[in-house]
């Protein structure tokens, strides 16, 4: 079945009206993941943009058609460990246990629980929508914020010009946990993304599956609402966000035969407006190194 046929027949599990910003990458990723997972799913959405957008509901009202809980920012992988083990005990491994968390709940405050659950190879699919910052609380820096980004806590000034550190490359760290499945996805490559979500769900029946999604954010990154797919595609083409997966057979990297420069990617994105030439060089080196590292892991010659 083509990815379009999959989507055509997949019911939306999320309330049709949620207060995610216009053109939100996180909303797109959340809806796709849960469409593929379907009604026989329990999902945890920790504090962050998606939870803030109302997907867990208000008052006595539900935010989804499936059971959804907002765990703590710090414990999504641990909370779902308990859920997953109980469902295995009940003999109901058919129930999908899914986390959809931002980069704060994944790479920072939630990282300890995530790392432990991955190491224990708990049976769940964990999807991180990485918009490179704490967007729900007003675009503050996170450990996945790219070098030079303007955020509320790394503002532009004469003394310090945006974030001064490179982002932490979470998907490769997760792959080193030797858990069942790890992949990176971008909404700009929807067939690849849908395939990997399907694969991740399948892998979650055997162990821990982790998907790291590039999640463009028009509000926090300052670009026009209709540019999200373009931005995500440029990130992939620049090699800052290579698309790869790691399963029991090892690493596979989606080849990028004609990469664009990082300079081309950052053009027009507000948060990169004040990048220095030095910053751009550093980001270019990072992209080259990242692609080469994954290519080497995938056994692909440069």
């Amino acid at each position: 079945m083509s990815y379009l046929d999959v989507l055509k027949n997949a019911e939306d599990m999320v309330s049709p009206g949620i207060s995610a910003c216009q053109g939100c990458g996180g909303e797109l990723i959340l809806r796709r993941v849960l469409q593929i997972a379907g009604p026989n799913t329990i999902v945890g959405v920790p504090p962050g943009c998606m939870a803030g957008a109302g997907v867990v509901g208000w008052n006595y009202q539900n935010g989804m058609k499936i059971p959804v809980h907002i765990p703590l920012l710090t414990n999504i992988a641990s909370f779902l460990t308990g859920v997953s083990q109980m469902y295995e005990r009940k003999g109901r491994l058919d129930v999908n246990v899914v986390a959809v968390a931002g980069d704060g709940g994944t790479a920072d405050a939630g990282f300890q629980a995530l790392s432990a659950a991955a190491e224990r190879d708990e049976k769940m699919l964990y999807v991180c929508y990485d918009n490179e910052g704490y967007m729900n609380t007003g675009y503050q820096r996170s450990s996945t914020t790219s070098l030079g980004s303007r955020t509320s806590t790394t503002p532009i000034g004469d003394v310090i010009n945006g974030k001064r550190q490179h982002q932490k490359y979470v998907p490769l760290i997760l792959a080193m946990h030797e858990c069942s499945y790890v992949a990176t996805v971008s909404p700009s490559d929807m067939p690849d993304m849908i395939r990997k979500i399907e694969k991740g769900l399948e892998a979650s029946k055997k162990g821990f599956a982790y998907i790291h999604a590039f999640s463009p954010c028009p509000t926090g990154w300052s670009y026009k609402e209709d540019m999200g797919i373009e931005v995500a595609g440029q990130a992939v083409r620049s090699n800052l966000f290579p698309l790869w997966e790691r399963d029991e057979e090892g690493f596979r990297l989606k080849k990028n035969p004609s990469p664009i420069s990082v300079r081309e990617f950052v053009e027009g994105i507000g948060k990169f407006r004040t990048l220095t030439e030095k910053d751009k060089d550093a980001l270019q080196e990072l992209a080259d190194r990242r692609y080469a590292t994954v290519a080497a892991l995938a056994g692909m010659a440069e």
Binding site: P71, S78, M86
Partner: peptide, 13 residues
């Protein structure tokens, strides 16, 4: 932190 979180998930199930 995770001890209480894991049992919380199981109790919620």
């Amino acid at each position: 932190h995770s001890a209480m979180s894991v049992v919380q998930g199981a109790a919620a199930a």
